[in-house]
């Protein structure tokens, strides 16, 4: 099995305070991995480090055969301005940026792909709705449709199922499983152990440093979770470095 991403002694942090320390592991190409850990464990920070938005304090992340635009990233709280006059269609179409860039035309073939992405996430009929009128779940579906169009080989999802209804979650999980079936590498930060055990074959448990990484049933054990919590409690000192890391 080849690696899609290799972390070499990676340390990431904010203002010199490390949030992820000395991470040394590999993400296999085509794997479906959940990133779990207590609050402030550095999970979101790790994803940011992978997108390049945050430069490592030490060590590095290397992507074997991937280029920057092979990576799609869905942040936890996207800073999308919901009052901005965009329709569902406009927002989804942004996913084509890699193909059409700033000036390219949206062809008929692109239109078909936009329609099919919108259909995949169950939003057919909502194309012309302004994004300001969508519910949280509908917005998340829209963002998944945009990810579909990005056609990325590595998909990074930060708490993609937080605060959405069960039906939306089921639908979006099937999108994630479809990516997995297509051989894409998917990493998702998740909180719910049930979701992880049911749908994610691999798990990476983080508590600032690596706790465990491997098949979910071996990683998601009571002992590991206890260890992770202990490690993270130890790091919530007077400087609240972990709280900062989660921000």
């Amino acid at each position: 099995m080849t690696a899609a991403v290799v972390f070499q002694d990676l340390t990431l942090g904010y203002e010199r305070l490390p949030a992820v320390q000395n991470l040394q592991t590999e993400i296999a190409d085509g794997s479906l991995t959940a990133i779990v850990g207590p609050n402030g464990a550095g999970k979101s920070t790790l994803l940011k480090g992978m997108t390049g938005a945050l430069a490592p304090l030490a060590g590095n992340v290397s992507f074997e055969a991937l280029r920057r635009d092979d990576i799609a990233y869905l942040p936890q709280q996207s800073d999308i301005d919901r009052s901005f006059p965009l329709t569902v269609m406009d927002l989804v179409a942004m996913g084509l940026w890699r193909e059409i860039g700033p000036f390219g035309r949206i062809s008929g073939r692109h239109q078909d792909r936009i329609a099919s992405a919108i259909a995949t996430v169950g939003l057919t009929g909502f194309e012309t709705r302004p994004i300001g009128s969508l519910s949280g779940g509908q917005m998340q579906r829209t963002l998944f449709a945009r990810l579909l169009l990005q056609d990325a080989r590595l998909v990074l999802l930060d708490e993609p199922f937080a605060a959405i209804d069960a039906k939306t979650m089921d639908d979006l999980i099937s999108v994630v499983r479809r990516w997995h079936g297509e051989g894409r590498t998917v990493l998702a930060v998740l909180h719910d152990a049930e979701t992880v055990s049911a749908h994610f074959p691999q798990t990476l448990m983080l508590a600032r440093e690596l706790v465990a990484h491997g098949p979910t049933e071996k990683v998601l054990t009571v002992e590991n979770q206890f260890r992770a919590r202990q490690k993270c409690e130890a790091c919530v000192g007077p400087t609240h470095t972990c709280g900062r890391a989660a921000a």
């Binding site: 997108t51 938005a53 990233y73 942040p75 996207s78 999308i80 301005d81 940026w97 990005q150």
Partner: peptide
């Protein structure tokens, strides 16, 4: 894009 979703624009280009 820069107005509506700057994070996305930065992530793709």
């Amino acid at each position: 894009l820069e107005c509506a979703d700057p994070q996305f624009l930065r992530s793709v280009s």
